[in-house]
Design a protein around this nucleic acid. Structure first.
Lengths: 95, 95
DNA sequence: TAGATAATTAGATAAATATCTAAATATTGC
DNA sequence: GCAATATTTAGATATTTATCTAATTATCTA
């Protein structure tokens, strides 16, 4: 997991909202965009950041490009966060 | 939890390194700073961001100001991340 | 109380980021 | 192949953020 890329991607509220929209299942770029008041170009930039962090997967389906969550990376991330906590969820104070 | 403040705070590698240093227990600002090659002023800025996110607690001890992790917020955060994942760790696709 | 040490605040600057408009690329259906 | 639609890329701009130096605040000790 590219840790820094994931943290950076999640730091922006618009990108987190995109991830939330994808919780219900895969959506095309346009469908995702309906919920936001920014241009397609800006959206596209956000997609690129999410992709770089491997938080979403893409697949072209005809004219459309369909985005879906990469839940593996999100799980890894959450568990890593828990590991940051001394004696919490994880194997405790390792390192 | 001030979600945005937490995400923003965690986005910076220096701040994450500070949190890691605190895993072993409370440290003064100066002790934390020993590990970094930036000025005290910059460090202090990072502390402020971490405090704003409630990720660390401070306590003055004489001349020193001692920082410690606020594990509660970190746990909340990790669990919230898991909840972002459809049917993963948490109570599944609520929301 | 004066000097030393620890840390923060103020103000400036350079780098990173979010957003925009315009142009380019990919795909469909006639 | 051409027009229409969906999306991305390029280039510009404004905002945010990380860092610095200098000054300020707080505490200790002699």
């Amino acid at each position: 997991m590219k840790q820094q890329a994931v943290f950076r991607a999640l730091a922006d509220p618009t990108r987190r909202a995109i991830l939330k929209r994808l919780q219900g299942g895969a959506l095309s770029a346009g469908e995702i965009g309906e919920a936001f008041d920014i241009t397609g170009a800006s959206l596209s930039h956000h997609f690129a950041v999410l992709k770089q962090a491997d938080l979403v997967r893409t697949e072209r389906r005809g004219q459309y490009i369909v985005y879906s969550l990469n839940t593996t990376v999100m799980e890894d991330f959450a568990r890593m966060m828990l590991d940051l906590i001394p004696a919490a969820g994880g194997r405790g104070g390792k390192r």
